[in-house]
C-alpha cells in the first residue's frame, strides 16, 4: 500500500499540473499552426484562388514543363552522385581508424554551413567567363555556368553531405563485427557490402536519399547564381516560381510552388514511414539493443 502511495506521489512529481500541461500543449500547437500549417495551407489556397482551371492552365505552360523537366534531370544526376559518395565516405570513416578522420568528417559537413549563394559563386569563379577555366571553356565552346552543368554542380554541392551524414553515425553504431565475420567466412568485399552492410543500412540510406532529393529539387540560392535565368532553358522549378512571382502572376507561381509543397509532404510521409518501419524492425528483433538511431538532421 505504501508503495502505491509513493508511486502516485512520484508520478505527480515528474509531471506538471493539468492546467500547465494543457497550456504548454496549446501554446506549442498555436506556434506550429502559425509558422508551419498556415504557410503550407497558403500555398494551396493561393494556387487555387482562381479555380482549378487556372491552376491546371498554369501547370500546362511549356515554360513550367521545361522547369519541371530540368528539376527532375538535376535531381536524377545529383542524388546518385552523392549516394555513391555517401556510401564510400561512410565506409571509409565508419569502418577504419586513420589520421585526420575528424577533419575529414568536418569537411564533409562543410557544404551545409556554406551559404547557398556562396556555393553558387564559387562555381562562377571557376567556370565563368572570367573564371579559372573560363577562357579554355570558351575556346572549346563548352558552357558550364549559366547552363545545365552549372546547375547540376551547384546542386551537387549543396546536397553533398546529406547521405554521408545519415550513414556515418549509423555504420559507426553497427560496428565491424558482421562484416569481419563475412570476410572470415570467405565472402569477397562486394559480397560483404551487398549482403551484410547494405541490408543493415537500408533505412538510413533511403532516409538520406529522400532528404537529398527534396533539397536537390528545391534548391534556390545556389542554383539562382549559376543559372542565368533563361526561361525554358536554365530555369528549375524554384527559379520559375520566383520569375512568375516577380511578374505578379501569383496564381501561376503558387501553382508551381504547390507541386514543390506536395514533394515536401511526400518526403515527410516517406520519412515518417521509414521511422515507423525502423521501430517495427527493432521491436521484431529482440536481441538487438533497443537503440533508436534518430536520424541526424542537416544543419
Amino acid at each position: 500500500m505504501s508503495q502505491a502511495l509513493s508511486s502516485t506521489k512520484v508520478q505527480a512529481g515528474t509531471t506538471e499540473a493539468r492546467w500547465i500541461r494543457r497550456s504548454l500543449i496549446g501554446l506549442a500547437l498555436v506556434f506550429m499552426f502559425l509558422f508551419l500549417v498556415l504557410p503550407l495551407a497558403a500555398v494551396f489556397t493561393e494556387a487555387l484562388r482562381k479555380g482549378l482551371d487556372a491552376y491546371l492552365q498554369a501547370l500546362k505552360e511549356p515554360d513550367a514543363w521545361s522547369a519541371i523537366r530540368l528539376t527532375l534531370v538535376t535531381a536524377a544526376v545529383a542524388v546518385p552522385l552523392n549516394l555513391v559518395f555517401g556510401v564510400a565516405a561512410a565506409w571509409a570513416i565508419a569502418k577504419y581508424e586513420f589520421k585526420g578522420k575528424s577533419l575529414l568528417t568536418t569537411l564533409v559537413d562543410l557544404p551545409f554551413s556554406v551559404s547557398p549563394v556562396v556555393a553558387g559563386l564559387v562555381y562562377v569563379l571557376m567556370f565563368g567567363a572570367q573564371g579559372w577555366f573560363g577562357p579554355w571553356l570558351q575556346a572549346n565552346d563548352i558552357k558550364i555556368v549559366f547552363a545545365v552543368p552549372g546547375i547540376i554542380l551547384a546542386t551537387v554541392f549543396v546536397t553533398f553531405p546529406f547521405i554521408a551524414r545519415e550513414l556515418i553515425p549509423l555504420m559507426q553504431a553497427q560496428g565491424n563485427d558482421e562484416e569481419q565475420a563475412a570476410i572470415v567466412l570467405g565472402a569477397t568485399g562486394w559480397q560483404t557490402f551487398w549482403r551484410v552492410t547494405l541490408p543493415n543500412i537500408k533505412w538510413g540510406l533511403l532516409y538520406g536519399v529522400i532528404l537529398c532529393n527534396a533539397r536537390a529539387m528545391g534548391e534556390f540560392g545556389a542554383v539562382s547564381v549559376v543559372s542565368g535565368h533563361i526561361r525554358g532553358q536554365t530555369n528549375t522549378m524554384p527559379l520559375h516560381v520566383e520569375i512568375l512571382y516577380n511578374e505578379y502572376q501569383s496564381v501561376a507561381a503558387f501553382a508551381v510552388a504547390s507541386l514543390l509543397a506536395l514533394l515536401a509532404l511526400v518526403t515527410l510521409a516517406i520519412k515518417s514511414f521509414i521511422e515507423w518501419q525502423h521501430e517495427q524492425e527493432l521491436k521484431a528483433s529482440a536481441n538487438t539493443p533497443p537503440e533508436r538511431p534518430h536520424p541526424q538532421h542537416p544543419s
Binding site: A28, L29, M32, L36, V37, L38, P39, L40, A42, V43, E46, L211, A214, R215, M217, G218, E219, F220, G221, M237, P238, L239, V241, E242, Y245, S250, A253, F254, A257, L260, A261, L263, A264, L265, T267, L268, A269, K271, S272, H297, P298
Partner: peptide
C-alpha cells in the same frame, strides 16, 4: 501528436522559395 512530430521537419523539406512566397502572401 504524430502529425505534429512529422510537421516539425517541414522547413527542411519545403523549398525555401516556396516558404518565402507563402510567408509573404500571409
Amino acid at each position: 501528436k504524430k502529425i505534429v512530430d512529422a510537421l516539425v521537419d517541414l522547413p527542411f523539406a519545403l523549398p525555401t522559395a516556396v516558404a518565402g512566397i507563402s510567408l509573404t502572401a500571409l
